Amino acid sequence: MANRTIYKCILSVLVLGILINAVESQVRRCYSCRSRGKRGDCKDPANFNATKLVPGVEAVPCPSGWCSKTIEGKKDGEDHDLATERQCMQRSPPDGTQRCAEALVGNKKVFICFCMGDLCNSAVVASPSLLLLLLFSSAALLLSTITMS
């Protein structure tokens, strides 16, 4: 009887994983905007979300599924030195890793973030995949079921 319960749990986890992966693999959207200064509509922290966009900010389809956010200039520098841009990336990063880091683009030092997920480029830190969260919680449930048997 305990084996049958374990098999049902494993099958449920697999089916849920496949369903969530199918939902997450749909065409994702990215925020698209560019503004200068600390008061621009595209600035950090974001003053918009999926249900409340501000003028100059769009939620655009992104076939690659990868979004970016780039901040040029110093956050504490002069207002005209600061620019923020959010957009869909044409391709994924070569290593397929979500991250934020300082980089050189041409001769300009920028702070750039890459993330994968629907409208993920609103925040500095990329959120973990829903699929990963489900798999970890299902594994914990499965382990607790096994130890109770």
Score class of each variant (00 low, 15 high):
D44G: 00
C113P: 02
P94H: 03
S35E: 00
A123V: 02
V110S: 02
I20K: 03
T97N: 11
I6P: 04
V15I: 15
S127A: 15
L53I: 00
S144M: 14
K74T: 12
P128M: 13
L130M: 11
D44Q: 09
K69N: 05
E85A: 15
L141M: 14
A126Y: 02
A140V: 15
T147Q: 14
I71D: 11
D41M: 03
I112V: 15
P93T: 00
L141R: 12
L104E: 05
E58N: 06
L119P: 08
R29A: 00
S137N: 13
S137K: 06
Y7G: 00
T51S: 11
A139D: 04
L131N: 09
L131T: 14
L141V: 14
W66K: 06
D76T: 15
A2K: 06
D79K: 10
P61L: 04
A139G: 13
C62M: 02
P93E: 01
Q98G: 04
R91I: 11
K43Q: 02
I18S: 12
L133Y: 10
C33R: 12
R28S: 10
C42H: 01
C33M: 13
L142A: 12
K8C: 10
F136N: 08
L133S: 09
S138Y: 02
G73E: 00
D41N: 08
V125Q: 14
A126W: 03
L142E: 07
L53N: 06
R86S: 10
M1C: 10
G40Q: 00
G117K: 09
F111S: 08
E24Q: 12
